[in-house]
Amino acid sequence: MLGKGRIAAALALALVSAGFTAPAPAAAAVSRSELALRWAPIHYQDVDATGSHALGGKSDYITRIDFDGDLNGRNNWDRAAQSGVSFSAAAYYSVAETSTHWFVTYFFFHPRDWVDHPFFETEHENDGEGVQLAIEKNGSTYGVLRSAVTVAHTSFYSYTPSGSTWTNGRETIDGTLQLQSSPHDDFQHPVTAQETQGHGLKAYPQYKINGDGIVYYPAAEGETPSSTNDRDVKYELIDIFTAGGMWSQRANTNLFASLGTFAGDTSGDCGVGTYSCGTNSANAPWGWDDPDDLPGRGEIATNPAKLNAEYFTIPGDNNRTYTYNPYTAETAALKKAAETAPPIED
């Protein structure tokens, strides 16, 4: 009598002989950190080194919210000018998921939103802007990129890559999202860019480097730019929901003045030689808002399926029920807080 192993081997041989092949084993599901790293933007940061508030260009470097070793939002303007603080490059991310799509939000932080002239512009401590990407699940490991919505001050801008099946929704698409190869992996990444000083963020080249600038590439670890004109700097990705991370600090009154709004004051030379210095003027992703558009404050991160359904016409299956959304438990509280939140400068 043939043993079970010999029977299985004989059956497999017979199937191959008959023209059948065994199915490939199912690929392991991609982790959220792997997904975030794969789609993280190649990021162009314009740099202005002129004026005392520029700190020789460092005021335009992206970095961690605790770049100075603490989680006090009210000392970041001053600490940015001190020697020994770290400007190692970093960005933060969160992932929400439905059965049909992933939504990845990226947040870029600067210790200063600054100006170098006295005319009618306000600078302020801390600055946070970013981009949210929608990725359709198509059976491949990382899916296919369909859209981006960026944050430039208090306005959102929408983009689709070439070949996307998504079209205009309630909002008109603002341009084409370019993709570019990274020298540090085998992927094409979306390309974003931030202006100097106020750090509005759009798809490249709607903002682009004008003179000095940094090109940041996503990687496992971050680097500090070697100069104001460094075109290959790695930035690390930090999960907003990591233990002890940004989300867990949302009730820390040293870091946040209110829900989704960073604490910032007028200490040091903020506003000196300029029009004024604002207070509590920068937002985390759950505080981002375009007041002219239908989605509510923070929903670009907390309810991205809703925002994308408003901004775009999405063909085929578009399930808006989340299989994973780390913000969900707090959505009602966020909405209630937004209804009573004062207007935010940015």
Rank of each mutant, 00 (worst) to 15 (best):
A8D: 05
A9Q: 11
A12S: 04
L13V: 01
V16K: 10
S17D: 13
P25G: 08
A29Y: 10
V30C: 03
R32V: 00
E34K: 10
E34S: 15
W39I: 03
P41I: 05
I42L: 02
H43Q: 06
Q45N: 06
V47R: 14
V47S: 14
T50V: 09
A54F: 04
G56A: 08
G57K: 08
G57L: 10
T63R: 00
I65T: 14
D70K: 03
D70T: 05
N75V: 04
N76S: 01
N76Q: 07
R79F: 10
A80G: 06
A81E: 11
F87K: 01
F87S: 00
S88C: 09
S88T: 15
A90P: 03
Y93R: 00
T98S: 14
H101W: 01
W102L: 04
F107M: 01
F108M: 12
V115S: 10
V115P: 02
V115I: 12
H124G: 13
E125A: 13
N126I: 03
E129Y: 01
I135Q: 03
G139Y: 10
T141A: 15
G143A: 09
V144Q: 12
A148S: 05
V149N: 02
V149M: 05
S155R: 07
Y157Q: 01
P161H: 08
G163Q: 10
G163N: 07
G163W: 08
G163L: 06
S164Q: 02
S164G: 02
G169S: 06
R170W: 13
T172G: 00
I173E: 04
D174G: 02
Q180R: 13
H184K: 05
H184R: 04
D185A: 02
D185W: 02
H189V: 12
H189M: 09
V191I: 11
Q194R: 15
T196H: 13
T196N: 15
H199T: 08
L201F: 02
K202Q: 12
A203F: 06
P205I: 04
K208P: 06
N210C: 10
G211N: 07
D212G: 09
V215K: 14
Y217C: 05
E223T: 01
T228Q: 12
T228E: 07
R231G: 01
D232H: 08
K234N: 15
F241N: 02
M246R: 00
N252V: 15
F256L: 06
S258L: 07
L259R: 11
G260E: 14
A263G: 09
D265M: 12
D269V: 04
G271F: 13
G273R: 11
T274Y: 08
N280F: 01
A282H: 00
P285D: 07
D289G: 07
D289I: 13
D292F: 11
D293L: 09
L294N: 13
E299A: 10
T302L: 04
A305Q: 11
E310N: 13
G316W: 11
G316L: 12
R320E: 12
Y322C: 00
Y322P: 04
N325Q: 09
T328L: 09
E330D: 15
T331I: 10
A333N: 06
K335G: 08
K335D: 14
A337H: 00
I344D: 03
